[in-house]
């Protein structure tokens, strides 16, 4: 199995909502347990109230398919205070359909791209996944050597991945560096200092 098809299988099998609910259940559960270790009881009151809402709500959603029908309907109930009336919805649909017909060539092209590729630039992983990884790498590099120096490296990596023209990537890297330098100069924040390297700073 190639790495691309392995990635596809993994990403298709990953249920984002269940992951989110698990984060809520584990996070709020741990927060609730921790409140019993607080020395001052009043400090536990608010985290217990909010933690209970998150914990119970996330559990209900996580196991909604096993709930009795009445309870499941209640869990999935939508507020829908500002629902548009039928006439408005019908008109809105008409307008959207008409505009879709007028813009058909562009729309068709976009849909085809979405179906055949997981990345808009033909890369083997989703663009959002790369952006998330790049942002994490940027923060980690910034921690190590200082955000000022990590900025152009991050912008170059981003530009290379998304196949931006070289001159544009260079311009963006310079602009990014200038933004970081501007923050450092105006607000006096030591962005040129890392925690592992360049610890004494340059400027």
């Amino acid at each position: 199995m190639s790495s691309k098809s392995l990635y596809r299988r993994l990403s298709e099998g990953f249920n984002q909502e269940q992951f989110l609910l698990l984060v809520f259940v584990i996070g709020s559960g741990a927060a609730l347990v921790e409140t019993f270790r607080f020395n001052i009881s009043s400090a536990a009151r608010f985290p217990r109230l909010t933690g209970t809402v998150v914990f119970v709500g996330a559990l209900l959603l996580l196991f909604s398919r096993y709930l009795p029908k009445t309870l499941r309907t209640a869990v999935e109930e939508s507020g829908g205070v500002f629902e548009a009336d039928e006439e408005f919805e019908r008109r809105q649909q008409e307008v959207e359909e008409r505009q879709q017909v007028e813009d058909e060539p562009t729309e068709t092209k976009l849909i085809e791209t979405d179906r055949s590729e997981i990345s808009t630039v033909g890369r083997p992983i989703h663009d959002s996944v790369f952006t998330g990884l790049a942002a994490t790498g940027y923060a980690a590099l910034g921690f190590a050597v200082g955000l000022l120096w990590a900025t152009p490296i991050f912008v170059f990596a981003y530009g290379y991945w998304f196949k931006l023209p070289r001159y544009l990537t260079a311009v963006l890297a310079i602009v990014g560096f200038m933004i970081a330098f501007g923050f450092m100069s105006v607000l006096g924040v030591p962005l040129d200092r890392g925690q592992l390297l360049v610890t004494g700073g340059v400027f």
Binding site: G142, Y158, G176, I179, A180, V189
Partner: peptide
């Protein structure tokens, strides 16, 4: 836009 917004977000966050 994306890399510039990310730079502003990270640098702004640290600041």
């Amino acid at each position: 836009l994306i890399p510039m917004i990310l730079v502003l977000s990270m640098v702004g966050g640290y600041t």
